[in-house]
Nucleic acid binder design. Structure first.
Lengths: 114, 114
DNA sequence: AATGCTTATCGTATAACGCCGATAGCCGAT
DNA sequence: ATCGGCTATCGGCGTTATACGATAAGCATT
């Protein structure tokens, strides 16, 4: 299967990739944990989540690749934190996309389909 | 593998499931097409996308299951349209989640990690 | 009833994801 | 130099997602 996902516009591919970063509860939980503590060593996240260390590290990598999280080696540990700018940008992208889909129908009722 | 995703709070699981609906460019393209035309027969979408009919139907089902799209049988065809309310709700959920993550740092620069 | 058009579903193949144990790499402390 | 703690990566396994052809089901028309 040649990757059909590459046949779509970059804008859509990019948005979909960002959405994928959000598409697992473990990653959302990691983001929340980082938000609570401001800064986190990997081990702390492992302690909070019901997942093995290897799995958490993998999710962290996904989040890093998506640009939502940054990590710095801090002696023996690695210190993670949110990239607030990236998060806001992503939220804005989603908002803009959805707004473009629903030009405006402030009337509560959605019109009938056909 | 017992599903580890079930070990997370419902709120996170739900948000992740919604994100998954956005996590493929084909589905985003379908949403855009529906927004442009207001209403769409499945075949029209198939004509627009570089995918087989079966694949498009599957993506439409994913979007329907996520509640973002509604479909009504219209004679021999099935007519699809966006559920604008659901889309706005979803966008709001994302916005709220991200806002909760980034309480406030109106200063453009993200603080250093550690 | 038979045909043609449209869509959903089934079955299947490939790819990607999620998960973990084990291992390797790194750094500080001993 | 060695040891011990922390993290990233590797390899393997099972599950889920993506994609498609083939088929079935529904409806309008003939």
């Amino acid at each position: 299967m040649q990757n059909k996902a590459d046949l779509f516009p970059d804008q859509l591919a990019h948005l979909a990739a960002q959405a994928k970063a959000f598409a697992h509860p473990a990653r959302l939980a990691i983001l929340q944990t980082l938000a609570q503590r401001g800064t986190c060593v990997c081990g702390e996240i492992v302690d909070v989540l019901p997942l093995a260390q290897a799995t958490v590290s993998q999710h962290l990598r996904t989040l890093r690749d998506a640009g939502l999280v940054r990590g710095e080696v801090e002696g023996p540990c690695t210190c993670y934190c949110l990239d607030a700018d990236a998060l806001r940008t992503l939220a804005d992208n989603f908002g803009a996309f959805v707004n473009a889909l629903t030009p405006d129908s402030p009337n509560g009722a959605s019109p009938d389909c056909c």
